[in-house]
């Protein structure tokens, strides 16, 4: 049975964590182990921002418990998909819990506006491709009335199949930490959560870029330079260079024995040496 947590401070007041938290977690094989061994999780500013949203709701020890869970590898099957982060968490019961952190994806029209803005300024794509969420990406989103990060708990529906009624159980906290680590290494994951995966996003940017770029290819569009080279013709004859042996390419090829055991490469070698002598 899945219970929906409705956030509110009174919940946690009414159900102190010690009440719900009992029993020891069961060890998991092949769980997702947090890379960070101690201290804070979420090194980048963007995963920090994400966690800060949770911290604003959470209460003390629960987040730390989640960190311990994440480091112990209790989480399996973490998936960051448009609209939801889902994971399986092994708790103290035999049956692992299903945890889900939802987030409303941007609408298609909103994405179009975002992509237009990103395509006009290649800094954003460059930073994302270099593994970083540009710090002014939020400004771009703000201009079209969007926000990359959830603005509060209302935007962040979370549920877990565990019996803990507190606002943020340690299982969800563990999932959040692991998601933050994923955001650290792949900032595109944050955008995927918001509705566009990396490939789609880049393809859309590429289309926008190509649309305004390049040389037209249809003859009709080239009438003003019909007899002209569109870029300078490269130097026609290169000076003879002392390169590798003329048959060097043959050495890169797999053997090709014919009937009788003759290797085609050996047949070709003398021919290549002849080819190296320019036309008389």
């Amino acid at each position: 049975m899945v219970r929906e947590h409705r956030s509110g401070p009174r919940f946690s007041e009414r159900f102190p964590e010690s009440y719900a938290d009992h029993g020891k977690r069961k060890p998991v094989e092949d769980g997702i182990v947090a890379r960070s061994r101690r201290g804070a999780i979420g090194e980048s500013w963007w995963s920090g921002r994400f966690l800060a949203v949770l911290t604003a709701l959470g209460v003390g020890g629960r987040l730390d418990r989640g960190k311990t869970y994440a480091r112990a590898g209790q989480v399996t099957d973490l998936a960051i998909e448009p609209g939801a982060i889902t994971a399986t968490v092994q708790g103290s019961r035999d049956e692992p819990y299903r945890a889900r952190i939802g987030l409303r994806p941007f609408a298609d029209e909103a994405w179009e506006a975002v992509l237009d803005a990103l395509a006009a300024d290649s800094w954003y794509a460059a930073a994302l491709l270099a593994g970083e969420v540009p710090d002014d990406l939020e400004d771009v989103l703000a201009r079209v009335g969007l926000s990359l990060f959830p603005q509060g708990s209302a935007e962040l529906p979370m549920d877990c199949s565990c019996p803990d009624w507190s606002v943020l159980c340690k299982h969800l906290a563990a999932v959040a930490y692991l998601a933050a680590e994923e955001f650290d290494v792949d900032p595109f994951a944050l955008l995927r959560w918001r509705g566009r995966d990396r490939a789609t996003l880049l393809a859309a940017l590429r289309d926008r870029r190509d649309a305004g770029a390049g040389t037209p290819t249809a003859l009709e569009d080239l009438l003003d330079r019909f007899h002209r080279p569109c870029v300078p013709i490269p130097e026609p004859v290169r000076p003879a260079r002392r390169g590798p042996a003329p048959e060097a390419l043959l050495d890169e090829l797999p053997p090709l024995p014919l009937d009788g055991g003759v290797d085609v490469r050996d047949v070709l070698r003398p021919l290549y040496r002849r080819l190296a002598e320019p036309d008389g």
Binding site: V237, L249, L253, L268, L275
Partner: peptide, 14 residues
């Protein structure tokens, strides 16, 4: 000219 150069350098295959 590029073709002739490719042939001279053995950058061709049957």
């Amino acid at each position: 000219a590029l073709a002739a150069d490719l042939v001279t350098r053995g950058r061709l295959l049957p």
